[in-house]
Structure formats: C-alpha cells, structure tokens
Design a binder for these strands. Structure first.
Length: 223
DNA sequence: ACCCAGGGTCATA
DNA sequence: TATGACCATGGG
C-alpha cells in the first residue's frame, strides 16, 4: 500500500541492465525534429518499420518542419506507409507541424519549463503521455521517465508497485525515486525497451534474465 | 494462420 | 475510471 521503491532499488535495476546491454544513451535520430517524428511513428509499431518510413522521408528531404509541411498530405501518408496506421499518423505529424509553427519552432519550445513543455505537447492531437515524454526526454533532455508497455510488463514481473497504475502515477513514482537525473532516466527507458525486445517478451518467458535468473515472475493477470 | 510491435482517440457505461 | 473498436504495416 503506497509502497514506493527506494532509490537504490531502481539504481540496482539500471546498473544490472547496463551491465548486460551497455550504456545506451538513446534515441536513434540526427535532430530533435527527427526525434519527434520518430516518437509519433513508433506508436504501437516496431522500430524496424519506423526506420523505413524515416528513410523515405529522408529521401524526400522532408525531415525538417518546413520541408515536411510542404509535402501534399497524400504524399506524406505514402512516405510513412511502412510504419503502419499511415493515414492517422500523417494527420498527427501535420498537427505536430502546426504546433511547431504556432509555437515559434523547436528552439522556442526549449525555453519552456519541463511541465509546461509537457503540457503543451499533450495539447497536440495524436500526442499522448508516452509520445510526449519521449519528446521531452529524448529531444529536450528533460528529466522525465517514459512509461510504455515494456515498462509495465517488466515492473509487473518484478513485483514492483504501480505496475498497473495510471500513467502519471507510475511515471512520478520512478521520477521521485531516481531524481532529476537525465542520463539515468534516458538509459532506464532505453534499457527497458532493449531488455523487452531481447528477452522480456510476452512469450516465451524471459530467458537468462539479468534481473532474475531464471525469470520466475508471472505475466500480468497471472499473478 | 496466428501474435506482436517503443499508442492514441473516440464512443460508451 | 475503464473497457472496446479502430487504425495498418512487416517480422516471427
């Protein structure tokens, strides 16, 4: 009941994951705008598919706000087709472009406080909590923790509290315990995703888990 | 022929 | 607050 993990507990998880997967320091992108685009495109979609879409955009020289805004909507959708939900995501990218336009661009957003930046992003149609935090952390280097499906699955299996709590409850719990440590928060989410892709999958059960070997934790719902 | 993937919106109860 | 339908491609 209201039991929060201690700082060492999360630090220990980070340390063990780092020992296995390395010091990742994430987001595979060349610019902050590219981070934002990738964050939208990877919604419920594997990164390999996003890479094709990004490559198509790069081939069209459309990886800047101005150049992307110049694309006809139908062509934008066609370019990002490999990332799935391409009609929905094309609209979301255009909402993002309109937001950047009326905000004065990426550099202007960087002058906002973290909470204000987060709130502004959440006001964009198509940008929910996880996408907003991807952008806040990986494009603007602000100290937020990103919660995703991998995070909930791992925390559930480790028996950590708030695994199924509302998004902000889980996010704040980790932020409070870890502190405003951008490199640690950057790595933590990246490591959870990497661990999720390599081992901590719905099935088969995590094999050779660096956090608990053998992984003895049940799937969500089975506990 | 399945299940899964670095979610979000909208309608409904 | 909490489900469920919907969006769609590509890999295992």
């Amino acid at each position: 009941m209201d039991e929060h993990p201690t700082r060492p507990e999360y630090r220990e998880i980070i340390a063990r994951l780092r020992a296995t997967y390395g010091d990742l320091q994430w987001w595979p992108a060349q610019t902050r705008f590219e981070v934002m685009v990738g964050a939208v495109l990877t919604q419920n979609t594997s990164w390999s598919n996003v890479e094709r879409a990004i490559a198509n955009l790069r081939a069209a020289d459309a990886l800047t706000p101005d150049r992307m805004a110049a694309l006809p909507p139908a062509e934008l959708a066609e370019r990002i087709r490999p990332s799935g939900y391409f009609n929905v995501k094309a609209d979301r990218l255009r909402h993002l472009l309109a937001f950047l336009e009326r905000s004065g661009g990426v550099d202007a957003l960087d002058t906002l406080e973290t909470d204000a930046l987060r709130a502004a992003l959440l006001g964009v149609k198509g940008i929910g909590p996880e996408t907003a935090d991807d952008i806040v952390l990986y494009a603007f280097d602000r100290p937020v923790f990103v919660v995703d499906a991998y995070t909930r699955r791992l925390f559930e299996r480790l028996g950590l509290p708030h695994a199924r709590a509302p998004y902000d409850t889980l996010r704040r719990s980790v932020e409070r315990a870890v502190g405003p440590d951008v490199p640690a928060l950057n790595d933590f989410h990246a490591l959870i995703v990497e661990h999720g892709k390599q081992r901590c999958r719905p099935r088969p059960r995590c094999e050779g888990c660096p956090l608990a070997d053998p992984c003895r934790f049940a799937d969500p719902g089975a506990a």
